[in-house]
């Protein structure tokens, strides 16, 4: 396979309580921007970025929650087909850490890929008032077989690393990312390319 070819397209989710900085992490990673004034996000849809890990070029579609987590109303379809998930808490908010179990439950219920790779991210380490220690985060991640990193979207600490490690682990997991089956996404090239195939009326 040639270097410039894209190995695969991955669906990555970002989940966690409102206000932990999910959209900030996403925008820092994809656009290298950070807006300290950013109000609660109503909806970032998804962002696409290519990332080369171990010489493998992958295209990432990273999905934000569109604000639907505010009232715990993320749709099951949001989770479908995702190979990786970034679960975020705020190191300065014990409450956001305590909610991680509920998020894992939701993931368990709706994720369609059994061996989906999970990365736990403790965000906002630039802040002084830590309520969750690194050890606590690490312990939680170990218990639930997750990767773990502390990060700051504001200072750009650990952000790149979080996504890279996640993707690396996905690529190393056999059967997780290879495309299979013929599904159709209308309006996205795939299907409409069939135009003109044999049909009743072409004589």
């Amino acid at each position: 396979m040639e270097e410039h070819e894209i190995l695969t397209t991955l669906k990555i989710l970002i989940i966690g309580e409102s206000g932990v900085g999910k959209s900030s992490l996403l925008l820092r990673f994809t656009d290298d921007t950070f807006d300290p004034e950013q109000a609660a996000t109503i909806g970032v849809d998804f962002k696409v970025k290519t990332l080369t890990v171990d010489g493998n070029k992958t295209k990432l579609a990273i999905w934000d929650t569109a604000g639907q987590e505010r009232f715990r109303t993320l749709t099951p379809s949001y989770y479908r087909g995702a190979q990786g998930v970034i679960l975020v808490y705020d190191v300065s908010s014990k409450q956001s850490f305590n909610k991680l179990d509920a998020w894992l439950n939701e993931l368990e219920t709706f994720a369609t890929k059994q061996d989906m790779v999970k990365m736990l991210v403790g965000n906002k380490i630039d802040r002084n008032n830590h309520e969750v220690s690194k050890e606590e985060g690490l312990k939680f991640a170990r218990k639930h077989h997750m990767l773990f990193i502390e990060a700051s979207a504001k200072t750009n600490d650990g952000v790149q690393c979080a996504f890279e490690e996640l993707v690396e682990k996905i690529i190393q997991t056999p059967g997780l990312w290879e495309t299979s089956g013929k599904t159709i996404r209308p309006g996205q090239g795939g299907g409409d390319a069939y135009q003109g195939q044999s049909c009743y009326c072409v004589i």
Binding site: S23, L27, Q38, A39, A40, T41, I42, G43, V44, D45, F46, K47, V48
Partner: peptide, 8 residues
């Protein structure tokens, strides 16, 4: 989709 970012 990449350009859709709403703020409160």
């Amino acid at each position: 989709p990449e350009d859709i970012i709403h703020v409160d």
